Simulated scan of single mutants.
Amino acid sequence: MPVCVDIIGHARSLFGCSRYAFEAKPGFTLKGLMEELSKLARPDFRKSIYDVATGKMNEHIAVFVNAREARSLKGLDTELRDGDVVTILPPMAGG
């Protein structure tokens, strides 16, 4: 079972679809996943979510691995395994 990526909200506009699947080879990390996603996304992905040049994520983006916020794990160094579900959730406003 691959690593599934669910893209929520306006972040979907950066991609052609809202769900992707990747094979989790040993050592596959959240950073590696973001780099793979950047190859599939529109150029705004770098500004909105992840900048490949700096290796940093937008601080306002929430990324979850199996419903746990990635910052509470190992951040971009979180190792991914087959069957994991990664959710990218952009900031939301409202009231």
Rank of each mutant, 00 (worst) to 15 (best):
44 D>L: 13
43 P>S: 08
91 P>V: 09
47 K>R: 12
86 V>E: 01
60 H>Q: 09
61 I>R: 01
29 T>E: 06
49 I>G: 00
29 T>N: 05
81 R>T: 11
3 V>K: 04
82 D>L: 08
35 E>V: 14
59 E>K: 15
40 L>D: 01
6 D>F: 14
53 A>Y: 14
42 R>D: 05
70 A>Q: 07
41 A>W: 04
6 D>T: 11
14 L>C: 04
76 L>N: 05
16 G>Y: 06
47 K>I: 07
69 E>L: 11
88 I>H: 03
4 C>H: 11
28 F>D: 02
62 A>F: 14
35 E>C: 05
87 T>G: 01
46 R>D: 02
31 K>Q: 12
50 Y>A: 02
32 G>K: 13
49 I>M: 02
33 L>P: 00
38 S>M: 04
60 H>E: 04
39 K>F: 04
7 I>L: 08
78 T>W: 11
13 S>E: 12
73 L>A: 04
68 R>E: 09
25 K>I: 11
15 F>C: 03
23 E>T: 13
81 R>D: 01
44 D>C: 03
30 L>M: 09
16 G>Q: 13
13 S>K: 13
57 M>L: 14
21 A>C: 13
11 A>Q: 03
61 I>A: 02
25 K>Y: 15
84 D>I: 10
35 E>G: 04
50 Y>L: 03
39 K>Q: 08
83 G>P: 09
93 A>G: 12
8 I>D: 02
68 R>Q: 10
30 L>E: 00
48 S>E: 14
64 F>E: 03
31 K>G: 02
21 A>E: 14
10 H>R: 12
19 R>M: 10
63 V>N: 01
69 E>K: 13
49 I>T: 03
11 A>W: 07
53 A>R: 14
19 R>Y: 08
80 L>H: 07
15 F>K: 04
69 E>C: 07
23 E>R: 15
55 G>P: 05
28 F>I: 06
87 T>K: 09
95 G>A: 11
66 N>V: 11
75 G>S: 10
15 F>E: 01
73 L>T: 04
21 A>W: 15
52 V>C: 02
41 A>Y: 08
87 T>H: 10
3 V>H: 10
52 V>M: 02
83 G>W: 15
90 P>R: 11
27 G>W: 14
44 D>R: 12
32 G>M: 12
3 V>Y: 14
31 K>P: 00
67 A>T: 13
20 Y>K: 03
52 V>D: 00
72 S>H: 12
3 V>S: 01
80 L>I: 08
10 H>M: 05
82 D>P: 15
73 L>E: 03
37 L>Y: 07
46 R>T: 01
15 F>T: 05
16 G>E: 14
83 G>M: 11
60 H>M: 10
30 L>T: 03
58 N>Q: 08
57 M>K: 09
43 P>D: 02
52 V>E: 04
48 S>N: 07
74 K>P: 00
41 A>K: 03
39 K>E: 03
88 I>E: 00
60 H>A: 09
72 S>P: 03
68 R>A: 06
58 N>T: 09
80 L>V: 07
87 T>A: 07
88 I>S: 00
94 G>L: 13
2 P>F: 13
49 I>K: 00
63 V>D: 02
1 M>Q: 08
24 A>H: 12
32 G>N: 15
75 G>N: 09
44 D>E: 14
81 R>S: 09
